[in-house]
Write a protein that binds this DNA or RNA. Structure first.
Length: 886
RNA sequence: GGGCGGAUAGCUCAGUUGGGAGAGCAUCGGCCUUACAAGCCGAGGGUCACAGGUUCAAGCCCUGUUCCGCCUACCA
């Protein structure tokens, strides 16, 4: 294989090639059983109807980083992929398809319709899986699951039956959230509330004799057609001695009772409340307390029922207008006020929700929630960042029963049958043939299906083969981590906790890492209607997957939203390219050999190995704690500013053989080592480019995914942080920077070689600079460098100060005295500010007495250092000013 | 109504034990220096939202205020 690299990195064919390679080599595969440490993550299953958006991109990048990192560390990693059947959403998609063909599901029939959905799924469902692959996701694809698969359906059924037998599932008539468009009940969570400008209408319900009556206030006048009472607070003095105990319901001219209930807020409106038990949860409760009949005036299709009299068949919003118009004409509309109130919408189709009385199935949530609550409180499951714990507690502590039945066709049909003869309810694992009570064979299966979230609540164990006792479960349950957005903390995470604890007797995951939302660059939520959506696939096309992934990781700080803009991705593409070119340069010097580090190392060699050891340690620490951004930016800093900017430049003479063969050998060895380790460290973040370079790097075999993860602890790795080399290198870099600074400020072209003199009272420093003379001269572009004890300042020279040393650059004929004076003055001002701050501390007796000794010593040292520096600069400035006037 | 988060350089944000205010981008100046102009070298830029408090010491801890964002709620 050629070791030549192209001048710029071209991601597209590289990505495709390596992804296929990884799959072919089975590098994503988990072992059912292994000596290795187990690490597992189940993917938050995207909707089978879904297309990849920024949220998925972030979510899966983070999971992939964790999984690739753990694999490199030698763990047996299972990343379980799959999709969710998304009952309502999928049914909607196929129904739209039918509509375009001029038919609908009722014409087709249930069985045929389900077939159609499966067909749709085969053809176009699961598109998102391919898109995840283009993100580089290293899921164990051979294990891909779907919530409607046979195995998972069995798990669903088992759970339903057992919960029913445990008394945790019941059926009953309650007010639920009804979506008239999707034609199904929804859980409370599935209703999205939005503040809307609306009105509060005051309507007079006259007494039977037509006299004054009671005026009520309502935001939904159409529901009055289902009113069965008017309520007032028993304490309300305005309604103490009424001439009648009934009023006439306008428009329908029906007598309804006046009831007294303390629920009524006397301060709201007129203190009169219309009661519609069939269309309002509160009214339903009041109705129960007072034995009121429930009248359903709005049907399941959102149109008025026969109970609505002449309004029958009218759409509910049309009816509102008609009712208001009629009331107005009859003089019963007393007044209209503006009112902001929140209106519930269907989270799937955004239709206004209708609270509706209906026979549904519910999960009794409290007993399950208590366990889920305890597991986080006692730390069996950790939520990261911690602030989400409160949100989790808050919800579980106030949980209400969960409506799980949906009046759609696509989903797990509820395994319940009613005997037509004796009305016995049968809930069973196997379809019953006859009624166990009366023996009748006339059994009718419940037509409702279960909420999709019911099946996804089982995901961590149903995907691993439960209810069978599989080896997979034994190896990987509880999973190590769950990575998810906070928007499904309740929908999914809390419910998985409840189900996992109930059925597996253990939490479903050790850690829950909750990441933020991806927003646009102005912090707005991305949405199609706003037109600010950035398509991840387009980003990948334009910048490459690695650049995109690195951007996501670098911005994924805990507890803060990720603001995404293409410009940022572009910035990180530059980083990928930088790495690419560093590799290109390195490979020119590495040729075929895979050298071993031996012999005496140069200072830059020692330094870069120490820095490598540090970044290795810190990346490990950061990833273990889910500080993705810190890990990413630490690597960025190391690769670009330490490896490329300093090490490669410093190592050039040695690499080009200008310092002898031995130096060339050892610098090659160090270069190889640093590049190799960097590739491994970077691989979880940017898998493609690292794999590509890995294969060009001599001395590597197979995939970088099979590499041994480096460690920076010296013991096992041979490299360790080395504070002394770092300090020495810092001094050297300080001298170089000092000269460069003078160059920059004096506008001296880089092509001009300079002389420099360093004066230092410190013998060790003089020796160091003397020893590294060549390196310094090279990087600072000096033609001579003299090292001496402090003495006379060379005439017409610019000065830089490094600790106790002075760096002079003689600029005979070049120096601009004005400029140099200004430069020094600026430096003085800066120093004075710092010194005065430190003096203030040192003059404070309390500080000296109470602060820890090491802090005091540090401040003292700093103060004296800066004071000395100040003195030197001032004397130089004086000389410059003399020279200026001379 | 309840709760949570945020306010730090022009922009986007780090700042995980209270002791140095930092990065990237943008800006300005200089460079085609044999990996990279998608680059290199250098520079400027801050009342850490506001007001108090604790402390020898506060971006960080406490109290209050303002403004943004989000979640939650049976507000007719």
């Amino acid at each position: 294989m050629s070791t030549e690299l192209d001048k710029g990195y071209e991601p597209h064919d590289v990505e495709k090639r390596w992804y296929e390679f990884w799959q072919k080599e089975g590098l994503f595969a988990a072992k059912d059983q292994s000596e290795q440490k187990a690490y597992s993550i189940v993917i938050p299953p995207p909707n089978v109807t879904g297309v990849l958006h920024m949220g998925h991109a972030l979510n899966n990048t983070l999971q992939d980083i964790l999984c690739r990192y753990r694999r490199l560390k030698g763990d047996n990693v299972l990343w379980m992929p799959g999709t969710d059947h998304a009952g309502i959403a999928t049914q909607n998609v196929v129904e739209r398809q039918l509509a375009s063909e001029g038919t609908d599901r009722h014409q087709l029939g249930r069985e045929k319709f389900i077939e159609r959905v499966w067909e749709w799924r085969k053809d176009s469902g699961g598109k998102i899986i391919h898109q995840l692959k283009s993100m580089g996701a290293s899921c164990d694809w051979d294990r891909e699951r779907f919530t409607m698969d046979e195995g998972l359906s069995k798990a669903v059924r088992k759970v339903f039956v057992q919960l029913y037998e445990d008394g945790l599932i019941y059926r009953g008539n309650y007010i639920i959230n009804w979506c008239p468009r999707c034609h199904t009940a929804l859980a409370d969570l599935e209703v999205e509330h939005e503040e809307k400008d609306s009105h509060l209408w005051y309507v007079r319900y006259p007494f039977p004799d037509g006299s004054s009556g009671i005026t009520i206030a309502t935001t939904r006048p159409e529901t009055m057609l289902g009113d069965t009472a008017v309520a007032v607070n028993p304490e309300d003095e305005r309604y103490q001695n009424l001439p009648a105990e009934e009023v006439l319901l306008p428009l329908l001219n029906k007598r309804i009772p006046i009831i007294r209930d303390s629920y009524v807020d006397m301060s709201f409106g007129t203190g009169g409340l219309k009661v519609t038990p069939a269309h309002d949860p509160n009214d339903f409760e009041i109705g129960k307390r007072h034995n009121l009949p429930s009248v359903k005036a709005i049907g399941d299709d959102g149109k008025m029922t026969a109970e609505a009299g002449k309004y029958e068949g009218m759409d509910r919003f049309e009816c509102r207008k008609a009712v208001l118009k009629d009331l107005e004409e009859q003089g019963l509309l007393v007044k209209t006020e503006d009112l902001k109130h929140s209106v519930g919408h269907c989270y799937r189709c955004h239709t206004v929700i209708e609270p509706n009385l209906s026979l549904q199935w519910f999960v009794k949530a409290k007993p399950l929630a208590d366990k889920a609550l305890a597991a986080v409180k006692d730390g069996r499951t950790k939520i990261i960042p911690e602030m989400w714990k409160n949100t989790y507690y808050e919800w579980l502590e106030n949980i209400r029963d969960w409506c799980i039945s949906r009046q759609i066709w696509w989903g797990h049909q509820i395994p319940a049958w009613t005997c037509e003869d004796c009305r016995e309810m049968i809930v069973a694992m196997d379809d019953p043939v006859s009624c166990p009570k009366c023996g009748s064979t006339k059994l009718l299966q419940e037509t409702d299906v279960l909420d999709t979230w019911f099946s996804s609540a089982l995901w961590p164990f149903s995907t691993m083969g439960w209810p069978e006792e599989t080896r997979l479960l034994k190896t990987f349950y509880p999973t190590s981590a769950l990575v998810t957005g906070f928007d499904i903390l309740f929908f999914w995470v809390a419910r998985m906790m409840m189900m996992g604890l109930h059925f597996m007797k253990d939490v479903p995951f050790r850690d829950v890492y909750v990441h933020a939302l991806v927003r646009d660059e102005d912090g707005q939520k991305m949405s199609k209607s706003k037109g600010n959506v950035i398509d991840p696939l387009l980003v990948i096309d334009n910048y490459g997957t690695d650049a995109f992934r690195f951007t996501l990781a670098a911005f994924a700080a805990q507890g803060r939203d990720v603001k995404m803009s293409e410009k940022r991705v572009e910035g990180y593409r530059h980083f990928i390219n930088k790495l690419w070119n560093a590799a290109r340069f390195s490979l020119m010097h590495l040729e075929q050999s895979c050298p071993e580090i031996k012999g005496e190392l140069s200072l830059p060699d020692q330094w870069i190995l120490s820095r490598l050891a540090r970044v290795t340690q810190s990346v490990e620490k950061q990833l273990d704690a889910y500080y993705f951004n810190d890990a990413a930016s630490g690597l960025y800093q190391f690769v670009w500013h330490e490896f490329c900017d300093w090490y490669l430049e410093a190592a050039k003479p040695a690499l080009y053989g200008q310092s002898g063969e031995e130096a060339q050998e050892s610098s090659r060895a160090v270069l190889w080592r640093v590049l190799r380790d960097s590739l491994i460290l970077l691989h979880p973040f940017i898998p493609f480019v690292t794999e590509e370079i890995w294969h060009k790097l001599p001395g590597t075999r197979g995939s970088v995914m099979r590499a041994v993860y480096p460690s920076g602890d010296g013991e096992t790795a041979g490299i360790a942080p080395d504070a002394e080399s770092e300090a020495r290198m810092e001094t050297v870099m300080g001298v170089i920077t000092g000269v460069r600074n003078i160059r920059g400020e004096m506008n001296i072209r880089p092509s001009m070689s300079l002389d420099a003199r360093v004066q230092s009272p410190d013998e060790a420093v003089r020796a160091l600079i003397e020893k590294e003379k060549e390196l310094i001269s090279d990087l600072a572009r000096l033609k001579s460098l003299t090292v001496e004890t402090p003495g006379e300042k060379p005439p017409s020279s610019a000065t830089a100060i490094l600790d106790k040393s002075l760096i002079f650059v003689p600029l005979e004929g070049i120096i601009d005295f004005e400029k140099e004076a200004a430069r020094l003055e600026k430096e003085l001002v800066k120093l004075e500010k710092e010194i005065s701050g430190l003096s203030k501390k040192l003059n404070n007796e309390d500080f000296l007495a109470k602060a820890p000794d090491d802090v005091v010593a540090k401040v003292k040292e700093k103060h004296s250092g800066l004071s000395e520096k100040h003195l030197k600069i001032r004397s130089n400035l004086e000389k410059i000013q003399q020279a200026k006037t001379a």
